[in-house]
Design a protein around this nucleic acid. Structure first.
Length: 488
DNA sequence: ATGTGC
């Protein structure tokens, strides 16, 4: 098993052990790179730019230990999706491209006490009602129409704002990464243009791979952790996947431009302009971190409002209160973020900007940042698969701090581009096939989006999760299967 | 991902 290699173009990976591959540091690489994947998953990224992009990220100042690619990794803007980069917060930098355009794209899972039998037969009504009540698609129209003053409150306070205005209960905050608020947010660092784009999108799914899906739990693999999470077989749960809409996108664009103007020197040292970064100690480092944290808060409020509206829809369809249906938040995880975290590096406690782009925080049992309710078992990790495959709930594994700066995968990972997907699939056919063959009801604003998100466009989520579980960075707890899905 | 290009 040892000393195997994997050749992909001009990149050759050396196998360290099962599911662990290393690209040794050569030339101007500051550190090696590591890919956590099976050989089957490596095959999926052997012909695109993923590994080249991963190698490029090792050039970022302050990068610590190694640049990381998760089992679901694929090529992205500069930095691979499924990438983790820990950059020294005192001597390194922070990089908008390593966070991603959709700042705090993420997922939350809401539980219910309904069983699949109680929901079977209502799928068509449920999907129509959700589609009619949860705004989706490109452009404006959210659950809350607001002004710039309200946007500023949301940017500063996150889900705490939603609590004050009756869109959340205290328990929701306690079951969200960072309790739904990044205190370091600085709304003044978000441009007026970004706020204008965001003010009519508060509580909206957006487009692309974003969705709201009603699911049934098909397997509980770990009875003890399943009980701690409140998950059991045949239970109905709801998954909400979306981000910070135009506000986050504009924030990324704004800071990439500012960095290009002000830090040309650093930019010229990097192999790819898309890795543009603000050096530690610069004004733009502070400004971007404040703006990014504000956009993170916006995304959490976005998911909170969608959850609130979903509770109302279920109340009408099932004629019971949401409290009676125990529609409680399991957890909310961020997929596209950077955070200042303290990690043990060769025995030293170091402050690092941990960039997780298409990667999930996966803190193990006992970590102080895991909510009290889950402290003994580890942080819930939610991994959405395609709309035909279903999803997983994991818990942070005991090896995550040592191997991946406390991170694991975030999804199945795309196999092909959106353009390619539209050439391969027709939205209406995909929809009909899901309903006729798998009893999954899909309703979308655009047929093109359904084609772009066809199940065949994604890698095998079971394989991604198997690798995470076997590495001990995120352990399997439960699996779900779709009942109905709405999307942009 | 995204007022689906600057």
């Amino acid at each position: 098993m040892s000393n195997g290699t994997f050749d992909a173009g001009d990149v050759t990976l050396e196998q360290v052990r099962e599911h662990v591959w290393e690209l040794p540091a050569t030339g101007d690489m500051r550190v090696p790179a590591r890919v956590f994947a099976s050989r089957a998953l490596l095959e999926e990224i052997s012909e695109d730019k993923t590994l080249e992009q991963l190698r490029n990220t090792t050039h970022l100042p302050g990068i610590t230990n190694y640049a990381i690619c998760m089992p679901d990794g694929h090529q992205g803007y500069g930095f691979p999706v499924g990438g983790v980069g820990a950059l020294d917060a005192e001597t390194g930098c922070i990089s908008p491209g390593a966070v991603g355009y959709d700042i705090n794209c993420g997922v939350r899972m809401m539980k219910t006490n309904l069983t699949y039998d109680e929901v079977a037969g209502t799928e068509a009504e449920l999907v129509d009602s959700l589609f009619a009540n949860v705004p989706s698609g490109l452009g404006g129209g959210g659950i809350v129409e607001s002004d710039v003053e309200t946007v500023n409150e949301i940017l500063a306070r996150g889900v705490d704002w939603a609590l004050e205005h009756g869109y959340a209960v205290e328990e929701d905050l306690l079951h969200c990464e960072d309790e739904g608020t990044r205190e370091e947010a600085d709304p003044d660092k978000v441009t007026q243009k970004a706020k204008d784009r965001g003010k009519n999108q508060i509580g909206s799914l957006g487009s692309g791979n974003h969705f709201l899906e009603v699911q049934r739990v098909t397997n509980v693999f770990d009875a003890h952790v399943g009980e701690a999470f409140g998950l059991e077989e045949d239970q109905i749960v709801i998954l909400i996947h979306c981000g910070s809409r135009g506000l986050g996108h504009q924030t990324c664009t704004d800071y990439l431009r500012k960095i290009e103007r002000q830090h040309q020197g650093l930019l010229n040292q990097l192999p790819d302009k898309e890795l543009a970064a603000a050096p530690a100690g610069s004004q733009l480092e502070t400004d971007y971190y404040g703006a990014m944290n504000a956009a993170i808060n916006f995304a959490w409020v976005n998911r909170q409002l969608i959850m609130h509206r979903t509770r109302q829809v279920f109340e009408r369809v099932f004629d019971r209160s949401w409290q009676n249906m125990e529609m409680e938040l399991l957890y909310d995880v961020a997929h596209n973020i950077a955070k200042k975290e303290t990690h043990d590096v060769d025995g030293d406690q170091r402050e690092l900007y941990v960039h997780r782009k298409g990667a999930t925080r996966a803190f193990p049992a006992g970590h102080p940042d895991v909510p009290t309710a889950y402290r003994d078992v580890g942080q819930p990790v939610i991994i959405p698969g395609s709309m035909g495959a279903g999803s997983y709930v994991l818990r942070g594994g005991e090896n995550s701090m040592d191997l991946t700066f406390g991170s694991t995968a975030h999804g199945a990972g795309r196999l092909m581009s959106r353009t390619q997907a539209k050439n391969e699939y027709w939205g209406g056919d995909v929809r009909d096939e899901l309903e006729d063959q798998r009893d999954i009801y899909v309703k979308a604003q655009s047929g093109a989006t359904v084609a772009e998100e066809a199940p065949g466009v994604y890698k095998d989520v079971d394989e991604v999760v198997r690798v995470s579980d076997e590495l001990g960075i995120g352990d399997k707890v439960a699996r779900t299967f779709p009942v109905c899905n709405i999307k942009g």
